[in-house]
């Protein structure tokens, strides 16, 4: 009893210090969008003071799709890890959400429970940071104000939840989405559609790629030490289905 507990404590300690390399590997992969996503719409920022230093026009950013279908801003994660208390969020470096030219960068984020989400205001104007978790998710909503030149805000979430909405009510075109995991095995695909989930213990997993609009794609993967653990996702799920 005591021995196992000590063992667990040690292994948890090791895990949190990133010492599990002996039996862990990285998952890498790409996400591709097949077909043509709906066109993004123009947004007009002229109503906001201090928003137009780089022009009053912007666009929405729902689909980040490159010339060859490289699908960015897709959230990828291992399924079935919830509730295992694997989160290393308290010691993980913060994730940064910037407000610049009255737009959020990035617009899709992912954090662990307890991990800091640092919100910066790089604009010469006031934003409010309206965090809107789903009813009953266990996460608390908040609506702090962040005037120009004020210090970064530090937010964090207690419970896993997909796509928590963060929006500014002063500039109604500003919104971003934060997914919260209670484990460290997740990533957001880059502009070129690639992603990497590090330090995954060897074993069999279900890996999910999820996009707010394109839906979910799921695959099985066996993670092997040292092996190239590659996954290729094709989205939207409908397109992937009709291909096979």
């Amino acid at each position: 009893m005591t021995i196992t507990r000590t063992a667990t404590i040690i292994s948890v300690l090791c895990a949190s210090m990133g010492l599990r390399s002996a039996s862990a590997a990285d998952i890498t992969g790409t996400v591709t969008y097949k077909g043509t996503p709906p066109a993004e719409k123009e947004i007009d920022k002229s109503a906001g003071e201090g928003c137009t230093t780089h022009g009053a026009k912007g666009t929405t950013h729902h689909y980040f799709v490159g010339a060859n279908g490289e699908f960015g801003n897709v959230t990828i994660y291992l399924e079935g890890q919830a509730g295992k208390n694997l989160s290393t969020g308290a010691s993980a470096p913060p994730v940064v959400l910037d407000q610049k030219d009255c737009e959020y960068t990035p617009v899709i984020l992912a954090v662990q429970t307890g991990q800091k989400l640092k919100v910066k205001n790089s604009d010469p104007t006031t934003h409010n940071v309206h965090v809107q978790p789903a009813e009953g998710s266990g996460n608390k909503g908040a609506n702090p104000i962040q005037p120009a030149n004020s210090p970064d805000l530090s937010l964090s979430f207690d419970k896993p939840e997909m796509f928590v909405k963060v929006a500014c009510d002063v500039h109604n075109w500003m919104f971003a989405w934060v997914s919260v995991f209670d484990h460290p095995y997740f990533a957001v695909s880059a502009k070129d559609g690639t992603f990497k989930i590090s330090n995954v213990p060897a074993g069999k997993y279900t890996i999910v790629a999820e996009h707010r609009k394109a839906g979910k794609a799921t695959q099985q993967i066996e993670v092997k030490d040292g092996g190239p653990n590659k996954v290729e996702f094709v989205m939207p799920a409908e397109a992937a289905k009709s291909k096979t």
Binding site: P38, A39, K41, H62, N172, F175, R212, G215, P236
Partner: peptide, 16 residues
Amino acid sequence: VAHYNSQRIETTAVNP
């Protein structure tokens, strides 16, 4: 409904 949502390009922070 999922299909409707995938085709919607919202310009404000509205819910699906």
